[in-house]
Design a protein around this nucleic acid. Structure first.
Length: 263
RNA sequence: GGAUUAUUGUGCG
């Protein structure tokens, strides 16, 4: 609870109180929760300390979930090398089998660090070497990793792969990542095609992220008329509320087009 | 029964 509320310090001080002799002994789940709390606060070093401490102080063995949390903590802090070495440790040191969530977390770590080649390599390897089937989160994460690195064509081909595969359909987050990938690369027309495709091909309802990403895609290219029209549409067709992000992108569009009065 | 993974803007750090 402390972690989700951004109160990493409170979580850690509760854990320290459990070191008292008359307190109940912390278990593997308590440590998992504490490591997650570090993750939200960017405290990857603390997360790694806890991973060691649970064994040295209490003889607790980290499990796959504990490792996944620690990997995610490192990934969110931009430490992809640490994330990768945890993936190796969990196998070689603890004999644990990484699961789909483990790989998703490492791919996400690569994405944040703009390591798209590594992200795609691991994406393939999790299937070919570990026999794990990528899920919709794996695809969304990999698409986002490509998008963050400017690789919009790679992102779109992953989305296409989902459609040609079997039993795995993109959800709105997958599309949002793809739209954002196009937007970052100046591909505003493709971003709009994806927005339409999400509805017409996959029957998905766009959310605020979808529209904000599409509006920003237009904004980056100065397409202010399209941007303003999308703001109207998100309200009238889907009942979505433009927020501060929406307006920032629209103002950006107007500014780039020299429309300072409208801005 | 309780802990883990994905998506949007600007600026600053």
């Amino acid at each position: 609870a402390c972690g989700k509320a951004g109160q990493c310090e409170k979580a850690l001080s509760l854990l320290r109180k459990m070191h008292d002799a008359h307190s109940p002994r912390p278990d593997v789940i308590i440590y998992g929760a504490a490591i997650s709390a570090c993750e939200e606060a960017g405290q990857w070093e603390e997360a790694l300390l806890l991973l060691g401490e649970m064994h040295s102080m209490y003889g607790l063995h980290p499990n796959v979930i504990t490792y996944n949390s620690a990997i995610s903590a490192c990934g969110k802090a931009g430490k992809w090398e640490k994330a990768l070495s945890l993936l190796e440790d969990m196998r070689s040191v603890h004999g644990l089998n990484p699961d789909v969530i483990t790989f998703n977390a490492v791919i996400s770590a690569y994405g944040r660090a703009k390591q798209w080649r590594r992200a795609l390599f691991l994406f393939r390897k999790m299937h070919s070497v570990y026999g794990l089937i990528p899920d919709v989160i794996t695809y969304s994460t990999a698409i986002d990793a490509c998008g963050k690195a400017g690789q919009w064509e790679k992102a779109l081909s992953l989305l296409g792969e989902m459609h040609s595969g079997h039993g795995l359909s993109p959800n709105i987050v997958t599309y949002n990542a793809a739209i954002s990938a196009c937007g970052r690369a100046g591909q505003w027309k493709n971003a709009l095609l994806l927005l339409r495709g999400a509805c017409s091909i996959d029957g998905l309802s766009p959310d605020e992220f979808t529209y904000n990403s599409a509006i920003d895609a237009c904004g980056k290219e100065g397409r202010w008329e399209e941007a303003l029209s999308l703001i109207g549409e998100m309200q009238s067709v889907y009942g979505l509320c433009p927020d501060v992000v929406t307006f920032n992108s629209a103002i950006d569009a107007l500014g780039k087009a020299g429309q300072w009065k409208r801005a």
